[in-house]
Design a protein around this nucleic acid. Sequence first.
RNA 1: GGCCCCAUCGUCUAGCGGCCUAGGACACUGGAUUUUCAGUCCAGGUACAGGGGUUCAAAUCCCCUUGGGGUCACCA
Length: 522
Amino acid sequence: MTVRTRFAPSPTGYMHIGGMRTALFNWLWARRHGGQFILRIDDTDKVRNLDAALQPILHAFRWLGLEWDEGPEIGGPRGPYFQSQRGEFYAAAAARLLASGAAYRDYDTPEQIKADREAAEKEKRPYITVRRSLELSDAQRAACEAEGRPSVVRLLVPRDRKVSVDDHVRGRVEWDCGLIPDPVILRSDGSPLYNFATVVDDVAFEITHVIRAEEHLTNTAVQLLIYEALQAPTPEFAHIPFVAAPGTTRKLSKRELGKYRTNPQFKRMFDVADSVLPRLGLACDDALNPVMVAFYEEVGFLPEAVLNALARLGWSLDDRTEYMSREFLVENFSLDRVVKGAAALDPDKLFAFQEHWMGQRPPEVKVERCLANLVRAGLVAAPVTAESRAFVERLVAALGERIKVFSDIVGYDEYFVADEDLRYDDKAFEKRIMKPERALPLLTSYRQSLQECPSFSAADLETHLRTFIDAQGVGLADIVHAIRVATTGKPAGPGLFDCLELLGRDRTLHRLDLAIARASAA
RNA sequence: GGCCCCAUCGUCUAGCGGCCUAGGACACUGGAUUUUCAGUCCAGGUACAGGGGUUCAAAUCCCCUUGGGGUCACCA
């Protein structure tokens, strides 16, 4: 039997990073066994703009290279793949259960149910359905129908027994059916509930392995009962641990975004969000933040890195393998090596994976993506000229491994702004130019001596500066920092001579003049 | 509260009775290199939640306690 797994997102307009991890495990398991991975859209709630709400999700799958074999946009033999279009299947399945006596129509009002529940709570006994409607005579039932009384369809839970599942990661888990209230499977308007629709669809799609987050473990009891009632074969289950927020054991949730901002382990990501998103004309909002997949793409993470990090969250191959490509994962993924405890997303580790995979990419990719970000930030003019491209190539080369994510490049705006617009890091300016007594005069005579520098190549600049410091009787460190701050405004960056070469003669001299003037005026 | 799940370094994890004076990765700390930062290279610290069993032997098996989490809808 060929392995078939599925992921069933609700069209919400964004793809949660934790959900992506679940989807990844499903995809990996299907690919590992040469089976199919299906995308089904759980749009049982009416959504205003389905396409707009779905696109970000499909985009996230495409970005990570998790192609689906059946589902939206490509269809498949068992469609439709939108639950909103599968109403007839749910109705038919419910009718079968009604006919077989595995389900019953319940005429109790929501108020009655609520009262039952409260009564049970008051008496400190577990609530189970009272089943008044089951006592109704045929005549009474007919009367209810005749007067048009609303009713729901409930599954008749077989009490006095247990249900159990042999879960791939949890082992055997058992529930006492006597404690399970009869679940509603069809609302009074005839629409199906999640637990029911899911099972009907999983049966129809011939899903062999249900791999989902552990918060669904409890649902499994009811779903198992539905499979039985439907007389359908049950798939295998694997309840994987949820992804926790950095440094916590709580489920990563978009609702906690406010808290995450002040979470020290998550800070690094929000710092990136705050510093680069606005420059790219984007806002950190409900759809774009460190909980969402799109964030990592926008900010310039590599899909390989995100995929690798996600795969290592709750799963490992052995005691040493950390870096794994998609292909490698497909060949080696296994459910029995999924851990049971919740795993917290680790921004530091994600950056480490990013650094590794960035190193695997050829420099052209880095140039291309940095260029795109510079254009987006308005630092490089739209149709990129050969000249701009050549400059960025040199900048990126000089920056080397300082570029972690592609958007880091927008933090090096000093190479793109007009000399007059250069912003100085105040602390650095103070420390390197104002404070040291000799800094300003040194800078001034260096600026003069620069006239004699034969060329503005890094090599000539270095030879020249070394000659200069010898003549002045000072050390390299006595002036290097002042020059750097004066010309770039920053305390750190590429090697100084690379910086100056990149800026070129005119800009370097001009910026030196401006900095000297500024320091003298102070 | 009922039901269910979970528990090894700060984090992700290895460990499925002896190879464990607990291994790796990230992070961290110190040193080296460099004009700064990043990087690189060495070095270092840090963990089996607690208590009972079982066993010649327990991080590994069982029980209890504690702690953490999930779930209890005419949501998904």
